Simulated assay, not measured.
Amino acid sequence: MTDTQILTLATDTAHDALVLFSGGQDSATCLAWALERYERVETVGFDYGQRHAVEMAARLRVRDGMAKVLPQFANRLGPDHVIDLTGFGSIGETAMTTDRAIQVGARGLPNTFVPGRNLVFLTCAAALADRRGLAVLVGGMCETDFSGYPDCRRDTISAMERALTLGLDKPSPIETPLMYLTKAQTWDLAHGIGGDALVELIVEESHTCYRGDRTHRHDWGYGCGTCPACDLRAAGWREWLKTR
Results as ranks from 00 to 15, higher is better:
1 M>W: 10
10 A>P: 01
16 D>S: 10
16 D>E: 06
21 F>N: 13
26 D>S: 10
29 T>G: 07
29 T>D: 15
31 L>R: 12
31 L>G: 12
32 A>Q: 09
35 L>Y: 09
40 R>F: 11
40 R>L: 12
44 V>S: 08
44 V>D: 12
48 Y>A: 04
54 V>F: 10
59 R>A: 07
60 L>Y: 10
62 V>H: 06
63 R>K: 13
64 D>R: 06
68 K>A: 03
70 L>A: 06
74 A>S: 11
75 N>V: 03
77 L>C: 08
77 L>T: 02
80 D>H: 15
81 H>L: 02
82 V>C: 13
83 I>E: 08
84 D>W: 11
85 L>T: 04
91 I>C: 01
94 T>D: 05
97 T>N: 06
98 T>Y: 02
99 D>R: 13
101 A>Y: 13
102 I>F: 09
107 R>H: 14
108 G>S: 12
108 G>A: 14
108 G>P: 00
109 L>Y: 15
110 P>E: 15
111 N>I: 13
121 F>E: 08
121 F>V: 02
123 T>H: 15
127 A>M: 06
127 A>E: 07
128 L>P: 01
133 G>E: 13
140 G>M: 12
141 M>I: 02
146 F>L: 07
149 Y>W: 10
150 P>R: 00
151 D>H: 05
153 R>D: 14
156 T>H: 15
156 T>V: 11
159 A>Y: 01
160 M>I: 07
161 E>Q: 13
173 P>M: 14
175 E>L: 05
176 T>C: 10
176 T>Q: 12
176 T>W: 11
177 P>D: 15
181 L>C: 03
190 A>G: 07
190 A>K: 02
191 H>Y: 08
198 L>A: 08
199 V>F: 11
203 V>W: 10
208 T>M: 08
209 C>K: 09
211 R>A: 14
211 R>V: 03
211 R>E: 15
219 D>R: 03
220 W>F: 06
220 W>R: 01
221 G>R: 05
221 G>V: 04
226 T>V: 06
227 C>K: 04
233 R>S: 03
235 A>G: 04
236 G>V: 06
240 W>G: 01
240 W>M: 03
242 K>M: 06
242 K>W: 05
